[in-house]
Structure formats: C-alpha cells, structure tokens
Amino acid sequence: MKIKITERYEAVVVELKGNVMGGPEAAEFSETLKKLLSEGKNKIVIDLSDVKFMNSSGLGMLISGLTTVSKEGGKLKLAGMGDKIESLLMITKLITIFETYENVDAAIASFN
C-alpha cells in the first residue's frame, strides 16, 4: 500500500494505492492521521480509487481511522471506492458508519 497526501482547499486527501491489508502499513496510516490532526487538519478524505484489494485488516484500519478522527472532532470521508470495497462494506453492514462519495471532488465539496 502506498499513501499520498494532498491538501486541497481546507481538506486533506489521503490517497491509498495498491493492496490495503493492515499490518505495518496500518500503523503508518494511523500515524499519518494523527499527524494531520495535530496540525489542525481534520477534514480528511480517504481516496480509495486506486485500491486493488482490501481485506478485513484493511477495513479495520479504516474503522480505526474513522474513530481516531471523530474523537478529535474531525470528519473522515471515503471517496472513489469500487464495487468490491462497497460490497465489503455492505456485507459487513459497515456502509452506514462511513460517509461515502463517488469521487474526491464530491467529498471535498461536501465539507462546504
């Protein structure tokens, strides 16, 4: 998994690429979010459009991220998820806890 951070207007886009499967990368993701929050950047969009595969550990990583950001009064939104990830969120009934958008632009616009 690769992580790329882009600031767009008042929001931060955290782009995940490749296979999202938890492990040591989950710690990196968590640290990234904590650093952003410590800098007062709490409007966060997770761009999933280049994610090839996600398993339950990757899903757990997103849940953990959502909890971390929410506890600090921020917002974490998901954008660009493909059918496979959407299906994963549906069958685990976790789709309701995430705010999801078709693409990054729509997610950013929703902050206004």
Binding site: G22, S56, S57, G60, S64, L66, T67, K71, I91, I97
Partner: peptide, 18 residues
C-alpha cells in the same frame, strides 16, 4: 460487536466473521 469496534476503533478480529 460492531458498535464496540467502531467506538474503540479496533482493527483486528473481523476475519472469521467475514
């Protein structure tokens, strides 16, 4: 327990369920 998962931000333990 998914509500607990979300509240505590747990990461593991979903595999068997899935």
């Amino acid at each position: 327990d998914l509500p607990v998962y979300i509240k505590e931000g747990k990461r593991g333990g979903l595999g068997m369920h899935l």
